[in-house]
């Protein structure tokens, strides 16, 4: 029972970017992926969500392989991605954006609505319900994007650079929200982040991606303490 990425190779028209990456995300677990620019982090989440085709290897959720499914079908099976740059529908309202998120949850309803819990904890989203999404600030947009993903009732949630372009204060908020999402939905979360320090602090386990390969993996706290990581990714001499 977990999201399994098995020896995956993928990339754009010419050069492969991922060369045989294997990872695992368990339900309820927060897994961070850190790595430098061009290491293949965005390629990784786009491959898992189906926006990029797998060249070889396999991606599978609890019910079996996802490799041959379209992104829409993967989302409906519960593997939901929040893309880099939020990607809200700019001309729609906040409420409509979140409504669209619910469409991926068709057939997987029942129980408590996870969205309500988030709206309670972050009332700002509720306050903005009727506003057009592109009038929101970057931080608010990220809140909405995360809420929209939760509305899809994810079993596995893929977050691509949620802190990108956010102020330090909003970055703190976003990490708090991610923590809350894990608590309330029990989803396994794969978090790709440039803010390596914060990501490692929040995560249970972590993978380090270098040149399209996993170069290190282990408990996040251990990695965060290792000299190698501190030098290469945390900017500490």
């Amino acid at each position: 029972m977990s999201l399994v990425i098995d020896n995956v190779e993928s990339g754009y028209d010419r050069a492969p970017i991922l060369h045989g990456v294997s990872m695992r995300v368990d339900p309820g677990e927060l897994v961070a992926v850190v790595g430098s620019n061009g290491a293949g982090k965005t390629t990784l989440v786009r491959t898992i969500s189906g926006l990029l085709a797998v060249r070889s290897g396999d991606v599978a959720d609890d019910d079996g392989s996802l490799t041959k499914l379209t992104p829409a079908k993967r989302a409906r099976r519960g593997t939901v991605m929040v893309p880099e740059g939020r990607k809200l529908f700019p001309q729609l309202t906040v409420g409509q954006n979140i409504e669209l998120g619910r469409r991926a949850a068709r057939g997987r309803t029942g129980g408590q609505d996870p969205v309500e819990a988030l709206l309670e904890a972050f009332p700002i989203v509720k306050e903005r319900w009727g506003q057009q999404a592109n009038l929101l600030s970057g931080g608010e947009q990220q809140m909405v994007a995360l809420t929209r993903a939760v509305a899809a009732r994810p079993r596995y949630l893929l977050l691509d650079e949620p802190s990108l372009g956010l102020s330090p204060l909003k970055t703190l908020d976003v990490f708090r929200l991610i923590e809350l999402i894990r608590e309330r939905t029990g989803a396994g979360i794969l978090l790709v982040e440039q803010m390596a320090d914060q990501a490692l602090a929040a995560a249970d386990r972590a993978y380090v991606l270098e040149h399209g390969r996993v170069s290190m993996e282990g408990p996040a706290a251990e990695l965060r303490a290792s000299d190698e990581i501190r030098r290469a990714y945390l900017g500490v001499a």
Binding site: L51, A72, V80, L92, A104
Partner: peptide, 16 residues
């Protein structure tokens, strides 16, 4: 309207 604004993100909402 969602599809016209951003088809790729629409697919992430489980809509083809």
């Amino acid at each position: 309207r969602a599809v016209s604004q951003d088809p790729e993100t629409t697919s992430l909402m489980g809509i083809s």
